[in-house]
Design a binder for these strands. Structure first.
Lengths: 270, 270
DNA sequence: AGAATAGTGTCTTTCAGACAATATATG
DNA sequence: CATATATTGTCTGAAAGACACTATTCT
């Protein structure tokens, strides 16, 4: 009988062919009261010239979480944001080069933190408002999702340029739909919305409501929203009043502060 | 400039080192009013002799969904069950052999459909009642989950043999916790429970309630449960009455039938 | 004052939970 | 009839949605 030591020293990982593994990032932000997604224009084959979700190959010495965080830093200079795994896409022919798995991640970033890495070697990047995704449910099997539920995915760039889902590289249309549905589904029972707040130690309930409205793509009743948030967060001490806003138009709003120690899932490990 | 054709023909997938990719299956069933999980006893290094979630390497010609379905067939002879992706675990050192990613799948099977593949070469397999998982939430980052939320994971075998989470191979304790929490979270707003029903064209509301109770690990009020289910499913035509049960003790129950055409996500593709 | 934004209050409906009561089978 | 299980009904309190009203700032 072989010992575990012997076994491990003789193990040859290259005896089978392995798929490539990439990490793809759905980086969302909220700007102009709309949910916007970061896309890059591909400079290489395949799908050269098409818009795509940024991503990169997983390195042997990093976990998928770490790879996702690294890619976000490389692309936008942003650290310390909410990041969560979305789904792993694994259809055999989703990449024309070879077998490529993609572990998709969902990132939420306040717009003010975004810095595009301009300059040499940087990809052309852009924010696109996302429209045309129906439904608020998290589906169990995104890769089998039928177009019944679909509608046309419309992405509107900052300069008003419009592309549709079928203009995207790879299976990225499907990935984006999955991400938007997931965000909507989780909005109600997680702290997801706080990932978009510009300053967690000083925000108004209106800012928070606008975030919810952007994600759900519908307007919410002001009074009911306040009541719900206050019950869920203020009553349990997870947000606290912090004084009045200054210098704004109209009646000054109460500023709130999130108790970071009570945060569920928002502190990233990097 | 290179054409896409040229590029693809010259692409060499082996230029980078790739991780191994496995598919791991969390096959749950309900027996004796309890949620039970299929485990196998490892016959090989590493973790030889320990209990583990069944799994296998992803082949180049199959998607992860297909690999999961294949492994379930090989292990239990079961086809056509509800199967959904859970999470991809990717910590660098989760497997002592080499870098191995695991795409974990959640399978729900009515107990009556299970057939263990006994005989030559088959792994020793067993069902274990799952206990000691707290909370009903789907967490965004299972790999960072702290033990604060934990409690001891206790698995009780059919013969009354007990193992705890730390007796399991790899990071399988964490994977099991994630799966149970996910099931609990999705029970309320998906058709997950129907994956455990023995006969979808003839079941009672009591059978369905016992399934819910097993997953949530608490008893539910009979009247309130009926009311909720009927509102959600009968009012929308998704379940229909089908006649009275016969030969049981006590008042015969109404049998129901699920309208398969309205099923969300339950039809597997194989 | 008028415009703009923030914040409160009220009414209705829906729904979940606790629990009591009734119905229909078997032995 | 006793027992076992299924099914219905009733009451209460929490919460969501619609909507009207009040408050505080700036110009």
């Amino acid at each position: 009988m072989q010992s575990e030591q012997q076994y491990l020293s003789q193990y040859d990982p290259s005896q089978f062919e392995h798929p490539s593994v990439t990490v793809d990032i759905l980086l969302f932000t909220i700007k102009d009261r709309k949910l916007q997604l970061l896309l890059i224009k591909r400079k290489e084959h395949p799908f050269i010239g098409k818009w795509a979700i940024p991503g990169g190959f997983l390195r042997m010495e990093e976990s998928a979480d770490e790879a996702a965080a690294r890619r976000i830093r490389e692309e936008t200079g942003v650290k310390n944001i909410h990041l969560e795994q979305l789904y792993t896409f694994s259809s055999v022919n989703r990449d024309p080069r070879t077998r490529v798995l993609s572990i998709a991640y969902l990132a939420t970033v306040p717009y003010g933190k975004l810095r595009f890495q301009a300059g040499e070697g940087a990809d052309e990047a852009g924010l696109f408002a996302v429209d045309g995704v129906r439904g608020e449910s998290v589906t169990a099997r995104p890769e089998k999702e039928l177009s019944a539920e679909a509608g046309t995915l419309v992405l509107t760039g900052t300069e008003g340029d419009v592309i549709t889902g079928s203009d995207l590289a790879f299976d990225h249309e499907k990935i984006i739909r999955t991400a938007v549905q997931r965000m909507r589904g989780k909005l109600g029972y997680t702290d997801l919305a706080f990932g978009f707040v510009e300053d967690l130690s000083s925000f108004t309930l209106t800012e928070l409501r606008i975030i919810h409205e952007a994600i759900l793509d519908r307007s919410l009743d002001i009074g009911n929203f306040r009541r719900t948030i206050k019950r869920e967060y203020e009553a349990t001490g997870r947000i606290r009043e912090r004084g009045l806003e200054k210098g704004a138009v109209g009646r000054p709003a109460m500023l709130y502060q999130l108790d970071r120690s009570s945060m569920r899932d928002l502190t990233a490990p990097f």
